[in-house]
Nucleic acid binder design. Structure first.
Lengths: 94, 94
DNA sequence: TAAACTAGTTTATAATATAAACCAAATTTA
DNA sequence: TAAATTTGGTTTATATTATAAACTAGTTTA
């Protein structure tokens, strides 16, 4: 039967975040916001969910005097993403 | 930027239904239920949504004395599914 | 003829996503 | 230098969506 898709990744915005993070070393909140065109609130919530799941690591610091949130994907996150893609291919018969 | 994924297809059960229907001429409600392992209620609701969108055609008849619901994907449905797959590939960089 | 089964639909509830409102600090501008 | 604006977010409220539970209508079986 069809595999159960990871519900944490089967969300448009979270998938976009993970997809962006998988190909870079790290990315800033503002960069993710620009790329995804999400609102800050939505982005903040989804980042927290991915962080809680251990899929990404979030570091809060400052760029000069301005707060700066930086994210990077974890090993667990990469594995989850790859599994999601694999499972999805079964659905789509790719 | 990333394409907006068709929200009607970006649902696990609806995607499974469409994926099953795309490779067959038609399928019965019971077959879809077996394959997706969904509850009747959930399946019924999602079929109606796909029908309302014009992605599938639903025919209600009888097999002997027992009611039988048969579904088949429409041209519009095939197109939407193919577009979804294409858009998704951008996310996943496939 | 009562219980259990088939094939669903409707409705209520839970989960999720999203938007709006808010906050603190820094910066610009009048 | 005080007020307004911007930056970089978080929190909270609301809308949307998914799911499960309850129900309907008829059939088969014991």
């Amino acid at each position: 039967m069809l595999k159960k898709l990871d519900p944490l990744l089967h969300s448009e915005l979270r998938l976009a975040i993970m997809s962006l993070l998988i190909s870079v070393e790290k990315a800033e909140f503002t960069y993710l916001k620009e790329q995804t065109e999400a609102t800050s609130g939505n982005l903040s919530v989804q980042i927290t969910k991915l962080e809680d799941a251990g899929y990404i690591f979030v570091k809060k610091g400052f760029k000069g005097k301005i707060p700066q949130t930086t994210c990077n994907i974890t090993k667990k996150g990469v594995e989850a993403f790859e599994k999601y893609v694999k499972d999805l291919k079964e659905y789509l018969k790719l």
